[in-house]
Computed example of a mutant assay.
Amino acid sequence: MNRPAPRTLRTVTGELPAGSVHGPVLAHEHLALDLDRRGDGAAVLHPEVHAAAVTAELATLREESGLALVVELTCRGMGRDADTLARISRESGVAVVAATGWYYEPFHTPEIDAGDVEQLTAVLVHEIEDGVDGTGIRPGVLGEIGSHGDVPTASEAKVLRAGARAALATGLSVATHAQLGRGGLAQLDLLTGEGLPAHRVGIGHQDLLDDPGVHRELAARGAYVAFDTVGKSSYQDDRTRLRLLLALVEAGHADRALLSCDISRHGYLLDEGGQGYGHLFRSFLPRLRAEGADDDLVDLLTRRNPLRFLTGASEEDH
């Protein structure tokens, strides 16, 4: 049975009416994770080592920029820690939405090979309804469900289908990881092929794909287009990100864009000399304003769009 989309946000500290969120939202971040595959500890935000710095950054952004909500897309196999997310949220005063799902294939857990789509769907629905890892903390989004390449592998396709079915069963939306921006259209085909409406899908890392035509097609089909690695200069220059975002806006799809920084290594934190979670507000949005963006457009991009995505609201609801 398909469940309607929620009108409230499910955060790590409880239900939050979407209408009470008056400040900006970071649509794709990580506050605690472990993606270390090389043994160098770089792709880590350790709950004991880095949580204090993460908390301090969010608290400062709440004061400086009104940051109201972070969508935390660390899922199964990525070192997710729901208790740490709740602690960071309480101490920073910033609401946090946790996630469930599976990342792209190199990070798949053994249950994916062992289970079929139905069994994997049941795993996700159980977490959404009963909470993560015995904490009672319930995810408020499915993500970042991943693939790499232009077409998902068989294992990735299985996970995407399970994510879509779990979304339909629970009313949540799905945020994806499209490695280096590739494969977004194929992801959308799989998700909508399971019956999930496109407006409940956010296709990730599109700011790493210099192809405005793909962005327009995703948006025209109703999906959200995530420009969510803002500030990661080793992957893409922000000038390119800005050009791609402006092209989507000028094509009439401002209501389909999501913005964030995807902080996924402790070296990105401010206290380690990185750009931090605030790069979007301190650097990128001022450049967007310099290109003519007004307060209404910035509010659309940073607040109304992510809230509409999270609640699964269609255009008819607004």
Rank of each mutant, 00 (worst) to 15 (best):
V125L: 05
E194Q: 11
S234I: 12
V201Y: 03
H28P: 00
L9P: 11
I203F: 00
H266Q: 08
G183E: 03
H108Y: 14
F284I: 07
D317R: 01
E29H: 13
R3F: 13
L269C: 06
C261Y: 06
D130L: 15
A226S: 14
G93V: 02
V174E: 02
Q119G: 15
G171E: 04
R138Y: 03
D228F: 11
A169N: 07
S234K: 15
V141E: 00
A114G: 06
E63D: 15
P47M: 09
D150A: 09
K158E: 10
D133K: 10
V70H: 12
V25N: 11
D189V: 01
A226K: 09
D113E: 14
L270T: 11
T121F: 06
G23C: 04
R216Y: 00
G267E: 15
L258E: 01
L208V: 09
A68T: 11
A166E: 02
D34M: 06
T55W: 10
W102V: 09
G136E: 02
G183A: 04
T240P: 05
W102K: 03
S260G: 00
A247H: 08
L120R: 15
G278F: 08
M78N: 09
L209P: 07
H205L: 06
A178T: 11
Y277L: 03
E105M: 14
L285K: 00
I88V: 15
V151R: 09
L258C: 03
A313Q: 13
V132G: 03
E129R: 07
L297D: 10
G163H: 04
M78H: 10
V12N: 00
C261K: 09
F309I: 01
L270S: 09
G274W: 09
I112Y: 15
G136K: 05
G66H: 08
A157M: 07
P6C: 02
G195K: 03
Q179Y: 12
R241L: 09
V249G: 02
T170V: 00
Y104K: 11
G19S: 11
A157W: 07
A162I: 02
A162E: 05
L35Q: 13
E291G: 06
D295F: 07
K232H: 14
E72Y: 08
H46P: 03
L209R: 14
P47G: 03
P47Q: 08
P286A: 11
D34V: 04
H266F: 14
V21R: 12
R287D: 15
L69R: 09
P286M: 11
